[in-house]
Amino acid sequence: MNADRSEPRASARAAMAAFIDALRRRLRDFESRASLPQELEQTVRQVVASDDLPTRFTQAATSVGLEVHPASPTDWMDLIGDILRKHDAHSVVVQLDTDSPLGKRAATELGNRLTADGFAPTTALDDETLFSADAAITSVAAAIAETGTIVCTSGPGLARGASLLPPVHVAIVQTSQLVPDQCDYFDQLAGQAGLPANINLITGPSKTADIEGILVTGVHGPRHVHVVLVSP
């Protein structure tokens, strides 16, 4: 970063601090009446841990336009092949978090399998690759049963563009990654030391209704989002 940009940064800081001071003076004699509610969960929560989370997830995800494919540890790779074939996808970005419950070797195994099946998998995450790939296969950080949401984060080896740029996104979700409600996910985040720079809660394929209210998918993000839901 340029050294000559430290001066504007200092003046930006000063302006902010001066404003906050002025605001504090303005509010000094103002009596605050609204306290910060502490108990949110019992009002906000819609799904509890004892609910059938895979079923809730599948219902919610399907209703927002995600395609959910129940899978087992032995057949999830077959399912991915079927999905890719359905979309005539050839070049495929594979981005599996080594920390995900799929295990460290999953990416390599999936890559080998896809190559053997005639696809062109890659783990490259540069612009050229992401913009031109037919599909991306990613792991997720979590999934929310309430809304049918999958959560993709940035991090080492995890590009934001993978779940965004290719027209088809296949997300692999382990049922153990399901949390019941948004409350649970945000509680989890709040307890985390340091957040990833970018977290995306993805609830459906990219969509718009700007043209006469007609629902169209695939505006900027993927037109098709598949969830391969792996139960142990």
């Binding site: 927002v64 995890l158 990833p196 970018n198 990219s206 993000g221």
Partner: peptide, 27 residues
């Protein structure tokens, strides 16, 4: 807004791209 349970993308940005992130804004 639209009757959706959640917008399709709810993006949480905490700072610029980290050193190890493959993509994202530098500033």
């Amino acid at each position: 807004s639209t009757g959706q349970p959640l917008t399709v993308y709810t993006t949480l940005v905490t700072g610029p791209k980290r050193v190890d992130d493959p993509d994202g804004p530098e500033e």
